[in-house]
Every structure is written in structure tokens, then in C-alpha cells.
């Protein structure tokens, strides 16, 4: 573990998660009784087709949306028991978020974007000065810390976003399609970074993606279909993204797997 960059991640468990949305006159179940555990310190990829519920699973895990049934436990805390304010503060301190669209505040510099959760928490920036310095160094953007987002490339912006996600030493980092707005080379670089950070810090990292090239970096893949957990499998047996993709296609196209039937 690289000192100062973070500490071990906490367990994240989703139990019996159900989430319904109204679309016109119909009700759609984006998640149906989904139960999954993201192992502490592991890098997990969540895959599924469009509309499979993978993003909803991530949103629920991040506390960005409330489940209709079931619960989410992050580092031992049941998010469903928290008020909006408490949940916000919990998310600020214990959950790091990385978005597809980077979502940096355009009027703040890179450094200010990174320290935003700390300052919002009422703490002085000096309390995390060392950590910020190390994050910038580790992410290779120290020379860009004074620039605003509109002066940064896509890859640099995503690195700043990752730094922001890590600055409060969260229990879990949740990334929603973190390479979706990047070219393949930059995307691979980001994936390597996430993998390394996960390994170095023992932090729990969950990435939602539809790209096998991203999922192959994970330790494990969780597959969703029609709002249910279809199956989970380790990635170590797959030599590359193509192999993983082929297996993924088999899984998704095949009959109902045991995991799905069980849930």
C-alpha cells in the first residue's frame, strides 16, 4: 500500500435490491431482488446490456437513489436508514464517485476540484495537502493542478475526477463508465490506474461498464440481465478482453443461469 494514498476498503453488500421506475403508464423494474457483495479490496466490474440495471445498481450503491425494497450496506452502514442529509455526508466521506462525463466544476481549478469534498466537509485543505500532492503525483497530473477543466484533456479530467474520488479516503470507489468519454488508449490507461490504486490501497472499486476491454482489468465480473444478477465470474482465467467478451456473450445469451434462478 502506498502510504498516504488510502487505506483498505470496506465491504459493500447489496441485499434483495428492487427499484421500480414509472415510464408513462407502465412500471418498470430496473432492479429485481438483486443481491451481490463486492469484496473488500477487490476490483469488480458490473456488466450488462443497456437496460439491464447495472447503472441502477451503482446508483443505489452510491446512495444516489433509494431502493424500493432491499438494502445497501457500505462499510457496515445501511444506507436506507439514513436521512438525505446524513446520506449526503456519508457519501461525501465514505464513497468516491467517478462519472462518465468527468463532471468537474468548470469554475474551479483541478486542485480545487479535488479538494472540494474536503472543503465541503468543513475541513481545512491543509489537512489533506500531503494526500493531494501524492494523488496528483501518482496520477501524473501534478503539472496541471492549477488549470481549469476547460484547459485539460479528457484523460487529464478523468484523472482529476479519480483524485477527487480518492481524496477523502473513501470505503469504496464507484465508477460509472469511466472510460465512456475517452479514446481506447486513454481508457486503458485509466483502467490500469484504477487497478493499481485498488491493489496499492486495498480499496474496494466497482466499475460499471459494457466494455469487455474495461472489465478484463477487474478481479471479478458481475453480470446483470433484466434487473437480476445473472452470474458472477472471476476474470483471471481470461487471457484478454476478447476471451472475456466471448464468455460474456455466452452467459448473456444462454438459458437462465443458476445464479439468476437462485435470485
Amino acid at each position: 500500500m502506498t502510504p498516504g494514498v488510502g487505506s483498505a476498503g470496506g465491504p459493500v453488500r447489496v441485499e434483495g435490491a428492487t427499484k421500480r421506475f414509472r415510464q408513462g403508464t407502465e412500471t418498470v423494474e430496473a432492479l429485481r431482488d438483486a443481491t451481490v457483495e463486492f469484496a473488500p479490496g477487490a476490483f469488480t466490474a458490473v456488466m450488462g446490456a443497456s437496460g439491464s440495471g447495472k447503472s441502477t445498481l451503482l446508483h443505489a450503491t452510491a446512495g444516489l437513489t433509494r431502493l424500493d425494497e432491499g438494502k445497501v450496506l457500505v462499510d457496515g452502514t445501511d444506507l436506507s436508514t439514513l436521512s438525505d442529509r446524513a446520506l449526503t455526508i456519508f457519501r461525501r466521506r465514505r464513497i468516491g464517485l467517478v462519472f462518465q462525463a468527468f463532471n468537474l466544476i468548470p469554475s474551479l481549478t483541478a486542485e480545487q476540484n479535488v479538494t472540494l469534498p474536503v472543503v465541503t466537509d468543513g475541513r481545512d485543505e491543509s489537512s489533506v495537502r500531503d494526500r493531494v500532492d501524492r494523488l496528483f503525483d501518482r496520477l501524473g497530473i501534478a503539472h496541471r493542478r492549477g488549470h481549469r477543466p476547460d484547459a485539460l484533456s479528457g484523460g487529464e479530467q478523468q484523472r482529476v475526477a479519480i483524485a477527487r474520488a480518492l481524496v477523502t479516503d473513501p470505503a469504496v470507489v464507484l465508477a460509472d463508465e469511466p472510460t465512456g468519454s475517452l479514446d481506447s488508449v486513454t481508457g486503458q490507461a485509466i483502467c490500469r490506474l484504477l487497478k493499481e490504486l485498488c491493489a496499492e490501497t486495498g480499496r474496494t472499486v466497482v466499475v460499471v461498464t459494457h466494455e469487455p476491454a474495461v472489465a478484463v482489468w477487474a478481479d471479478r465480473v458481475v453480470v446483470l440481465r433484466d434487473g437480476r444478477i445473472l452470474t458472477e465470474f472471476p476474470t483471471e482465467s481470461f487471457s484478454d478482453a476478447h476471451a472475456l467478451a466471448a464468455h460474456y456473450q455466452d452467459v448473456v445469451a444462454g438459458p437462465v443461469a443458476a445464479g439468476e434462478a437462485a435470485s
Binding site: A62, L64, D84, R85, T88, I89, R91, R92, R93, L97, F99, A101, N103, L104, I105, P106, L116, P117, T120, D121, R164
Partner: peptide, 16 residues
């Protein structure tokens, strides 16, 4: 709008 959503996502409360 998006900026406000991001601020909420990274931890600003409604009050803030």
C-alpha cells in the same frame, strides 16, 4: 443544473 447535481453527488447537502 449538472454542476449542482455533481455538487450534490460529491457531498453538498441541500442546505449547502
Amino acid at each position: 443544473g449538472r454542476e449542482l447535481a455533481v455538487l450534490r453527488a460529491v457531498g453538498l447537502t441541500r442546505g449547502q
